[in-house]
Computed example of a mutant assay.
Amino acid sequence: MEGDPFSPFHLGQAAGPFTPVQLLLGDELWDAHAGSTTSTGWGQASPIEIGAALMQGWIREYLRRLRRSCWMRKSRVALILLSPLLLWLPSPARVVLHLLLFAHLSAWLYGVFAPNSRLFGPIFDRGSGKQKWVALTFDDGPSLDHTPLILDTLKEFGIRGTFFVVGAKAKAQIDLLRRIIEEGHALGNHTWSHPPHLAFEGVVGRRRIKEEIQRTASLLESITGRRCRLFRPPQGFKNHLILESCAEEGMVVVGYTARPPYHANGLPSSVLVERVIRDSGPGSIINFHDGWMPGREWDREEMRRTLSGIIQGLKEEGYRFVTVEEMVGRAESDDEA
């Protein structure tokens, strides 16, 4: 990737450390370049004609995507177009424009890191509050150490969950994936390889993002016979490319309402159970992790106690456990009504 002359890696090497304008412009140029296509059917066309045709297609595709993009993306392009004024504007106006650039970058980072931020597009982080429904979700599996324990616990209570699986792990643990399906649980897409910095790969382009989503989607469809509609980005981090790619695939980006920590951090299960129940309400989506980094996963017995305590506590408060698919379906029905 670093050998590509259009890459912002080279923009940065040529121009030194990134300024805010270079960072925004580099990302936009690379996204446009990554979306361009080439053709082998040029016949006897001259190099100038080929170059003009490629440039025309590149610009047309870029503008098409920009029209369909979120307002954050459009505001970024507007600031890029205004940035040459920094060379000619009087000092007070330059200060204002710099403040606008800083505010935009701050908002952009908030949109990336805040799990349920809607700055880049819609996030489904809570079901309808009309029913006392909650959904349990499990990311990063399937895992030989934790998935069987989770499935056994859910089966014990007679409830279904939603598993956001990593494609490469699902392919390696196909029997566990089949068990998840056979026991009536819903599946979600959690990318192919769980790249931790996917939301920062505007400098790599949407091709990587689409490949991560599509490879897992194809695997799940080959097993279940139907297209998976649910997607959750790794770490919950996202950008406009992720949400646009999901929209093109007809997928719903799922956030969460409450989440126990990745591991207990020395806290007793009773404290974790109390926190999750306190933070939950009608339509809540609770996010567990089905295994995590080696050496930092939940202790199996600790996880079983915590999961069982949350289920038991919410059942006692009259909640019904459903899948995220059911929540999405109910929300869509309510919108149509």
Score class of each variant (00 low, 15 high):
Trp71Arg: 13
Trp71Ser: 14
Met72His: 14
Met72Asp: 11
Met72Val: 14
Arg73Val: 11
Lys74Trp: 12
Lys74Arg: 15
Lys74Phe: 12
Lys74Asn: 14
Lys74Pro: 12
Lys74Val: 10
Ser75Ile: 07
Ser75Gln: 14
Ser75Val: 08
Ser75Cys: 05
Ser75Tyr: 09
Arg76Ala: 11
Arg76Leu: 11
Arg76Gln: 15
Val77Gln: 08
Val77Tyr: 02
Ala78Asp: 00
Leu79Phe: 07
Leu79Arg: 10
Leu79Gln: 08
Ile80Phe: 13
Ile80Cys: 13
Ile80Lys: 13
Ile80Trp: 12
Leu81Ile: 08
Leu81Ala: 14
Leu81Cys: 14
Leu82His: 12
Leu82Glu: 15
Leu82Ile: 08
Ser83His: 04
Ser83Tyr: 06
Pro84Tyr: 03
Pro84Lys: 02
Pro84Arg: 03
Pro84Gln: 03
Leu85Cys: 08
Leu85Pro: 00
Leu85Asn: 01
Leu85Tyr: 00
Leu85Val: 00
Leu86Glu: 02
Leu86Tyr: 00
Leu86Trp: 00
Leu86Pro: 01
Leu86Gly: 03
Leu86Val: 01
Leu86Ala: 01
Leu87Val: 11
Leu87Asn: 07
Leu87Cys: 13
Leu87Trp: 13
Leu89Ile: 02
Pro90Ser: 04
Pro90His: 04
Ser91Val: 12
Ser91Gly: 15
Ser91Glu: 13
Ser91Lys: 12
Ser91Ala: 15
Pro92Lys: 10
Ala93Met: 14
Ala93Asp: 09
Ala93Ile: 09
Ala93Phe: 14
Ala93Lys: 10
Ala93Thr: 08
Arg94Trp: 02
Arg94Cys: 09
Arg94Gly: 00
Arg94Asp: 02
Arg94Val: 02
Val95Ile: 15
Val95His: 09
Val95Glu: 11
Val95Gln: 07
Val96Asn: 10
Val96Met: 13
Val96Trp: 10
Val96Tyr: 07
Leu97Ala: 03
His98Ile: 12
His98Glu: 13
His98Gly: 15
Leu99Asp: 04
Leu99Gln: 07
Leu99Ser: 06
Leu99Asn: 04
Leu100Gly: 05
Leu100Val: 07
Leu100Glu: 07
Leu101Pro: 06
Leu101Thr: 08
Leu101Asp: 06
Leu101Gln: 12
Phe102Glu: 10
Phe102Cys: 10
Phe102Gln: 12
Phe102Ala: 15
Ala103His: 07
Ala103Asn: 08
Ala103Gly: 10
Ala103Glu: 07
His104Gln: 05
His104Glu: 08
His104Ser: 04
His104Thr: 03
His104Ala: 04
Leu105Ser: 03
Leu105Ile: 09
Leu105Asn: 05
Leu105Thr: 02
Ser106Asp: 01
Ser106Cys: 02
Ser106Val: 03
Ser106Arg: 04
Ser106Thr: 06
Ala107Lys: 01
Ala107Trp: 01
Ala107His: 00
Ala107Leu: 01
Trp108Tyr: 05
Trp108Ser: 03
Trp108Leu: 06
Trp108Lys: 01
Leu109His: 10
Leu109Lys: 09
Leu109Cys: 11
Tyr110Asn: 05
Tyr110Gly: 07
